[in-house]
Design a protein around this nucleic acid. Structure first.
Length: 595
RNA sequence: GGGGCUGUAGCUCAGCCGGAUAGAGCGACGGUUUCCUAAACCGUAGGUCGUGGGUUCGAGUCCCGCCAGCCCCGCCA
């Protein structure tokens, strides 16, 4: 564009809005691989028809050998779109390169930037001590884990932090209540089990809401705990240990790695937060509470809304902890992170917006530091209301996972019977567990996280459509080719290693090319997820890849094809399997050889 | 009252920096199996993108108003 219209380019540059070729992936296959829409906005300033502008740009492209090496002759279409199609031999060469690449063409962050990437904090899951994990923790846990996996794969040092609720008023309630009704739970390990603890917690909460004296005692208990009282601390430690073991069972089951760093960790830094805000001139005492008034956010009466960092009774609350955490995570004496990501429900958006603003104004976010709330919607039942058990209780996460696996197992057994297959018990358990858990994870991840999510066992376990079983089946099909004598490992590699032209990949059918083009999108998709933090983009990609593969598999023979098609198709099978395994792995989903 | 999110096919949802005739899955209807797992594939029908304005070469996408649903709103997290 610069060569075709030097004057326009120069003046656009001077105006601070350099010409944009608007190069994007083609919106439809018949438009080629990429489209450049940049000619259209030039029509007005240049006073020429857009197609004529496009022609001039195309002429420059055609005169450039580095372009013609890569692309076929550009086509001008519609009002002035420039459609670009990559040379088939370039696509084949790229497939060849990825066959020999562990990372399947996805660059690492260090490679790209040329420097060591700074740590990224992903704060997710975050259940509360003395409560069981329930359906409310599902999305944070699954989405957070997947984002962490993507960032790790890209080579960022990731801190997966479990910001467990192990501090605060709720704790004061529980300890106060236990002191009165079950003191043994406070000084003897495992005196009561977690189920009882949950019941005690519920009672404590009821008393807290109803009884003012209890409320006061509870608040005092929190202050004691936060002040380091040894009796309170011991009780607290026991409760935490007990909950921690229960959480770990769920994490093991879902293959989720997390470092626990609860709210209590930041206790020593809370005072510093208040002092720091005071030093920054942001602190205001209002009604006995120390707060920072927000800019641009006003409440009922039109007055600015406060973020309270120290209550009138001297206790700190969650905003203080969150601020301390931000400070610690970005701080060079702390985690030294450059990006801090919070995966919590959308209901906390206001809270985080407020806390982030205060952190910014206090100067605790370094230059170039990113502080991001990754919100997600509610889990709803098929009736569109918040998911509950038939009895109206919150759904426990372990029950939900159990049911998914049970349903997967029943499904598998029915199919084995129908197909008159026999498999041993270990196989059945392994497949049912993998499919059941994969279905739960994939259903959650495949939806844009912002919207509420309608939970349905039937839909997530369906064997067709955008579901985990459908994707897993594509991998199984490829594994089947391998079992029946297809040498996937050797496919396409030998030719590259020997540097021999004779064994170069050769594709002739449209189904092959469609698969090639789909396979080569992986790096762009990963980059997008890393930036936008939307795992559903990866899911859509893997689903489309599976569809394109199934079409290929259905319509073209692999093992019975003549050479050189046979090896070339085997190479595509191998790269497809590797891509699906990698992609599903980034979603936290393991694959199967048979199902 | 203020703020946030959402509203796209019968249902569940995609839709990337504003780009060509708005996509998928399910469900419905019709078809495909001497062949690597048919858990698949091919086809048909189905849309006022909540609504009214605006911005522009071009709007599901950006801006403003309105309607509906959900969520949040000072000492819980």
């Amino acid at each position: 564009m610069q060569r075709a219209f030097p004057d326009a380019a120069a003046s656009a540059e001077a105006a601070g809005q350099p010409l944009d070729p608007q190069l994007a992936p083609a919106s439809k296959p018949e438009f080629g691989d990429f489209q450049a829409n940049g000619a259209l906005p030039l029509a007005k300033p240049l006073g020429q028809p857009p197609r004529k502008i496009a022609e001039a740009v195309v002429a420059e492209l055609q005169a450039d050998p580095s372009f013609t090496q890569l692309c076929l002759a550009p086509q001008i279409a519609g009002p002035g779109f420039i459609n670009l199609t990559l040379r088939p031999e370039c696509l084949a060469a790229e497939v060849q390169a990825r066959l020999g690449d562990q990372r399947l063409g996805v660059p690492s962050a260090a490679e790209e930037s040329g420097s060591e990437p700074a740590p990224v904090v992903v704060d997710f899951s975050s259940p509360n001590i003395a409560k069981e994990m329930h359906v409310g923790h599902l999305r944070s846990t699954i989405i957070g884990d997947s984002l962490a996996r993507v960032l790790e794969f890209r080579g960022h040092p990731v801190l997966r932090l479990n910001h467990v609720g192990d501090w605060g008023t709720q704790f004061g309630m529980l300890i106060t209540h236990l002191k009165q009704v079950a003191p043994e739970a406070l000084d003897t390990a495992d005196a009561v089990d977690l189920g009882d603890l949950v019941a005690f917690y519920r009672q404590a909460k009821q008393r807290f809401d109803a009884d003012e004296a209890f409320q006061t005692t509870s608040r005092e208990e929190v202050v004691k705990l936060q002040g380091g009282d040894p009796v309170s601390l011991k009780a607290w430690g026991l409760l935490c240990d007990q909950s921690r073991r229960e959480f770990q069972k769920i994490y093991d089951r879902l293959d989720i790695r997390l470092s626990e760093r609860g709210e209590s960790f930041y206790n020593p830094y809370l005072d510093g937060v208040v002092k720091g805000l005071e030093a920054a001139g942001l602190l205001v005492v209002d009604d006995g509470a120390r707060c920072v008034f927000l800019e641009g956010v006003s409440g009922k009466d039109g007055k600015p809304l406060p973020v309270i960092v120290q209550k009138s009774d001297g206790g700190f609350n969650y905003a203080t902890t969150d601020l301390a955490a931000i400070r610690y995570r970005f701080g060079t004496e702390g985690d030294g992170a450059r990006r801090v990501i919070y995966v919590t429900d959308a209901g906390q958006a206001n809270h985080f917006a407020g806390v982030f603003q205060v952190a910014q104004r206090a100067g605790w976010v370094p230059e170039g530091g990113r502080l991001e709330h990754v919100p997600f919607g509610l889990v709803q039942g098929e009736d569109g209301k918040k998911l509950k058990t038939r009895a109206g209780d919150t759904v426990r996460l372990r029950d939900l996972l159990d049911e998914a696996v049970e349903r997967a197992e029943a499904d598998l057994r029915r199919r084995l019977q129908e197909e008159e297959r026999t498999e041993d018990e270990a196989f059945i358990q392994h497949v049912a567990t993998t499919v059941g858990l994969a279905a739960v994870k994939y259903a959650d991840l495949s939806q844009n996280r912002i919207t509420n999510y309608q939970f349905s066992f039937d839909r997530m376990l369906a064997l067709q459509g955008n579901t985990a079983p459908y994707l897993l089946y594509a991998v199984v099909r490829i594994a089947g080719i391998s079992r029946k004598g297809g040498d996937l490992e050797g496919a396409g590699v030998a030719g590259a290693a020997a540097g021999g032209e004779a064994e170069a990949l050769q594709f002739t059918e449209p189904q092959e090319w469609a698969l090639v083009r789909e396979l080569l999108k992986l790096d762009a998709v990963i980059a997008e997820v890393e930036e936008e933090l939307l795992p559903n983009r990866l899911c859509s990609y893997l689903f489309e890849l599976s569809q394109v593969f199934n079409r290929f598999y259905d319509q073209l023979p692999v093992l019975k094809a003549e050479e050189p098609s046979r090896s070339s198709r085997l190479a595509l099978c191998r790269l497809t399997a590797d891509t699906l395994r990698l992609g599903l792995g980034l979603l936290g989903i393991p694959t199967l050889e048979r199902m």
